[in-house]
Design a protein around this nucleic acid. Sequence first.
RNA 1: ACCCUGGUGGUGGAAUUGGUAGACACGCAAGACUUAAAAUCUUGUGGCCUUAGGGCCGUGCGGGUUCAAGUCCCGCCCGGGGUACCA
Length: 962
Amino acid sequence: MYNFKEIEAKWQAQWAQDEVYKVEENDKEKFYVLDMFPYPSGAGLHVGHPLGYIASDIVARYKKLRGFNVLHPMGFDSFGLPAEQYAIQTGQHPAITTATNIKRYKEQLKRIGFNYDWNREVQTSDPNYYKWTQWIFKQIYNSWYNKDTDKAEPISTLIEKFENNGTYNVEAGIEEDWFKELNLDNFPFGEHFAGEFTATDWASMNAIQREKILSHFRLTYLSDTWVNWCPELGTVLANDEVKDGVSERGGYPVVKKLMRQWSMRISAYAQRLLDDLEGLDWSDSIKEVQRNWIGRSDGAMIRFELENHAENIEVFTTRPDTIFGVSFMTLAPEHPLVETITTSDQKDEVNRYVEAVKNKSERDRQANAKTISGAFTGAYAIHPFSGEKVPIWISEYVLMGYGTGAVMAVPSGDQRDYDFAKHFNLAIPPVFEDVDISESANPTKDARVLEGSFLAGLTGHEAIKKSIEEIEGQGFGNGKVNYRMRDAIFSRQRYWGEPFPVYFENELPRLLSDEELPLTLPSVDKYLPTEDGDPPLGRAHKDDWPIFKGDRMECNTMPGWAGSCWYWLRYMDPSNSEAFCDPEKMKYWGNVDLYLGGAEHGTGHLLYSRFWVKILYDLGFIHVNEPFQKMINQGMIGGVIEYILMRKEKTNGQAHFMCKDLAEKEGLENFVKIAVRTDIVSEYGQANSYLTQEALQQFSKWMPEFEHATFECGQGVLRDGNFESKGGESSWLVTKSEQGKMGKRYHNTVDPVEICDHYGADTLRLYEMFLGPLEQHKPWDTNGITGVHGFLKKLFKACTEATDESAANKKELKAIHTLIKKATEDIDRHSFNTVVSAFMIALNELNAVKSKNKEIFKTFAILISPYAPHIAEEMWKVLGQDGYIVNATWPAFNEEYLTEDSYAYPISFNGKMRFKLELPMGLSKEDIEKEVMAFEKTAQYLDGKDPKKVIVVPNKIVNVVV
RNA sequence: ACCCUGGUGGUGGAAUUGGUAGACACGCAAGACUUAAAAUCUUGUGGCCUUAGGGCCGUGCGGGUUCAAGUCCCGCCCGGGGUACCA
């Protein structure tokens, strides 16, 4: 009798007691397998979470059996928005709710029987951990990017350069116009400063002035930036945290706002992040996501002089070959020159337009993407080659965040410019010969440039090269590679995050010393963010801070991704108080051999981790250049979401269940879709069942926001919990099922512990693998779980009946060796689902030959132990083995047991090639002759070719081995 | 719009490099045991035709390459994901 409850509880207790999964550095070969650690949200784990964890656990156990020293840790990404949101909702300190949530997560994880070494657990919100996040921040702050050596260097090397030669020969990975943001008051150089100064200049500056200059070179810096501001969440968001113009978390509107923020200079690493993707064993799709995000484009920077103004406008273009097709210029409405150049008679119109754009949310801006709008500034630029006047417009289709925030418009070659020109009646000069531009723009590069310029007769491709040469030669521009990826905004106006180890003196940032770390969070009355952008830490008084220095402390906190950038290093040495990790240990464990997690982190965590690792590598703190060598992105497990339709009512909390026909008649836009618990729907209101009084009452009790709502159904009306019967006609509860994500807000989560109670952890593990390919998204359903559970029952039964000590026979050996081969090869290529089938096939075959052989089942136990460790451990004991199966050795398969008995007919053609024809035993003479004839026919085709393996099809199976 | 993915029975999915398509499991059907149910076991199960032996058709659609195509090539259709005025 397979008593999984008893077996699983017993072994889990023993593993814990004997610390079976404790890992230490030794002289064996290492293998590091890592899962993306979870956010400990209040909802607990659902059955989707363990999917990747089970796979990594299988790999970890398998590698251990193969003789590797395996590091397989787990921890919690306990800082960040979700933990704080939960704290705000429940009114408790985030540290307390986080601890509670982590406890629940750990209980759930332990129940599934993972082989984590919990001694190595890390929590990003633990001061002993974020001490080092703050320390790393300090290293990044104290660095600059040297383009000559193409790596980050300590800021001291830059200071040395400034002291010796000023900016001469300094090639830094920063924007060329960095000096424009410098407030030049009191600096030794005049107002025509163009970013270059001498050693003498440097020597004449005071400390504050020097610091102001250095801050423009540091890898993390404060600047006034247009940020994604989310008023609802009360914080700025990084680009990857904004989806479709709303916040990824919560779906709140996001607007652009100019704020003083910390940024990380990831742009300096764009090319290396792009290049090093080559060497990674990641899926093409996730590499592609990163490539697109980095968004390299090759082109040119071109400077246009202005009529009547000293300033000039720089544009970036990928098509300098079309420069003679320029008929106007467009600036982003936020472009700093807009105010300067707008003529007085255009001022009103331009101001009106700029205001209108400013007040639009990101979502509105995206929604109106197709509508053409803009305003003429009244100013003109001078075409660098022809000297013609080019009118300057502003329009929101030009983004301040990309390139220079200004474009040279070539309507004949760019559809957006074309549409703009048509709309405002601007010229559309042709660029290429024989290209039709009467209906739309034509972006071809294959046509030849029209007569009348130095580019005449060249194809677009040739003209790009030639035009850049000419632009550089005449000194009004240069060839340039541009990246779409912006520097990452690093501060959040939040409470629950790492405090910056920074204070301010005279508005200049200063770092705390290493001895003063960790800087822990001060206590505040409220964790709630404010709508105007003042961080909650600003509520703390001077005395509330554990350390208070200078004029004020930095009150922003670091974003959620800070702690997760380097956690994989901390697992190697989790309790080190002298360093973030012992170098010897880093040397042993190297980087992560196999990383499992969702592909949704492609532009966030996975990019930022690579970025930080490269900085730490450049600065010599670590010796690996990439964190995650190989990665598998497990698919999401979805659930069925049941929606009900409710009438939207602006009046206080009113809601109605509506009858379906009516909803359709009134138009669905008047209704809200609300996800509800599946059992509520199935119990009380399938689409075609009546909604009863109890159903309504239960429902309004269950969702507190509808406690005082009004519900209508066929039998009457429920108001404030009082039901008024109206009798007579009936109406339907409108429901709709959709496949979607699994999550608390959809009320469709399934707790893995529930499954463990019902079928056991081993069944859950096996079943989640059996569901299908790991990478694939799939809905959760328990339809097939009985099959897997039944298999384990049968396996256990067969095992308890195995008493035969003698040597295994041929059939048994064939069954088990087929399984060894399949399990080995499939785990190696991470095809976890097919192995489960192989287990079942092997057991079916052993049962068919009524095998009772103990050796065979011992081997079976080892093979299944990565998948179903509890039952394997129990089998091991039942079969009379001592010790833990974890310490067993993975069996090798013997090809000899796998070959079929067969006759072999050697045949040769023209003395060139020889084939061996293998036929199954027991064929009649005629059959064999038939086979040989069919084979000869095929072999004639093959003669002279080079087959590796051939199976002749016409009649029966025939294997050909060259 | 662009870039990734995927499309195979009633269902989830196998088929590793082109080589017996549908492994394994669910579901369904029939049978055994049982007073009955559950559990368990046995058998069958892509479609169409055939009394049978067997035959024909079948991997989203249309073409092609090959002795041989779910797999490779060309052109479409549909689903999922990412990016989105990126100059």
